[in-house]
Simulated assay, not measured.
Amino acid sequence: MTRRLLWAAPPVALLALFFLYPLGLVVEQSLKPDTGGVSLQPYADVLASEPFREALWTTVWLALAATAGCLVLGFLLALVIAFVPFPGARAVARFVDVFLSFPSFLITLALLFIYGTVGMANGLWTDATGAAEGPFQFLTTPWGVLLAEITYFTPFVMRPLLAAFAQLDTAQLEAAGSLGARAPRIVRRIILPEALPALAAGGSLVLVLCLNEFGIVLFTGAKGVTTLPTLVYSKAILESDYPGACVVAVVNVLISVGLYGLYRVVSRRAGA
């Protein structure tokens, strides 16, 4: 027992130093108003403020909508890759793994090149019609943020789905097809039940990631879209309200930890 404790002490100490200690400093700062002392007043002020409520609502609905979009799109794309034979299907499946390593701002920049104010789509429109500007002006709105998040996070749903589909017994599909079952019924009665654990695991992960996404909101230039991470940035950097920024950060961490706990439970059940 003593030897085990000695082996466990260094990693626990490193964890406490590099992760728990900074988090403890954030919590400590959130309890110290500018007037001095220790108080819950920063929490009362922030939680009662309209900007916080709007940021919380924006964060939640964007995360839920992006997760729903990723689940639908990821399921359809994974179905095609796994069950519709076409040249290069294996290469596409491997590219999904590579895509997971891309930074979120890279995808956002790509969307700006396509749908930005001076992007390709607007350029083609103005060249064809002679209009002063193109019709695609949505990237700086919540819908642009939503599109970028769905584009970036869909592979996080596809990866566990492809793994689940690889383990699916194809004999069931062949038997159902020989008995006259059409593709929609096979998907609904055989494939979807097997995919539910992977969908739940991927959806939980995407929900956590969307809740904490900062780069996409920043690079889309959506100035009217304020989420909890951007509110932390605004309070700390622009307003120098460090107690308020720490309060928002603590709330964001609590929500994230709760959702991460859900993700871990679902992942264990799914075997992901």
Rank of each mutant, 00 (worst) to 15 (best):
M1I: 07
R4Q: 11
W7K: 04
P10D: 08
P11D: 06
A16Y: 06
A16F: 13
L17V: 13
L17E: 09
G24R: 11
G24L: 11
V26S: 12
V27Q: 05
S30T: 15
L31Y: 03
L31S: 06
K32V: 15
P33A: 15
P33I: 13
P42V: 04
D45C: 03
V46H: 01
L47N: 05
A48L: 06
F52D: 06
F52T: 10
T58F: 01
A63T: 01
L64C: 11
A66S: 07
A66L: 00
A68G: 14
C70V: 01
L71R: 09
V72Y: 06
A78N: 03
L79I: 09
F83K: 04
P87I: 12
R90Q: 12
V92F: 15
A93H: 08
D97W: 09
F99G: 02
S101I: 12
S101Y: 11
S104F: 02
F105G: 14
L106K: 00
I107W: 05
L109C: 08
L109M: 11
L109I: 14
A110K: 03
A110E: 03
L111K: 00
F113W: 11
Y115C: 09
V118E: 12
G119R: 08
M120T: 10
L124K: 03
W125Q: 13
T126G: 06
A131T: 08
A131P: 14
A132P: 11
E133R: 10
F136W: 10
F136R: 01
Q137E: 12
L139P: 00
T141H: 01
P142G: 07
W143F: 14
L146G: 08
A148N: 07
E149D: 12
I150S: 07
I150A: 04
Y152H: 13
F153V: 06
T154H: 07
P155N: 10
P155V: 12
P160V: 04
L161M: 11
A163L: 11
A164D: 10
F165P: 15
Q167I: 00
D169T: 05
T170E: 11
Q172T: 03
A176H: 04
S178D: 13
S178Q: 05
L179M: 14
A181D: 05
R182F: 01
A183D: 03
R185I: 05
R188V: 02
R189E: 14
L192F: 14
L192Q: 13
E194R: 11
E194H: 12
E194D: 05
L196I: 13
P197T: 04
L199H: 06
G202W: 05
L205P: 12
V206D: 01
C210Q: 03
L211D: 03
N212Q: 08
E213V: 00
I216E: 04
I216H: 02
G221W: 02
A222G: 07
T226P: 00
L228Y: 02
L228C: 08
L231Q: 13
Y233R: 07
K235G: 02
K235L: 15
K235A: 09
K235D: 04
A236P: 12
A236K: 09
I237A: 10
S240L: 11
D241S: 13
V247Q: 01
V247L: 03
A249C: 11
V250Y: 10
V251R: 01
N252A: 15
V253C: 12
L254S: 09
L259F: 15
Y260D: 00
G261P: 11
G261R: 06
Y263C: 08
R264M: 08
R264L: 14
V266L: 15
R269G: 10
G271F: 10
G271Q: 10
A272K: 00
A272S: 05
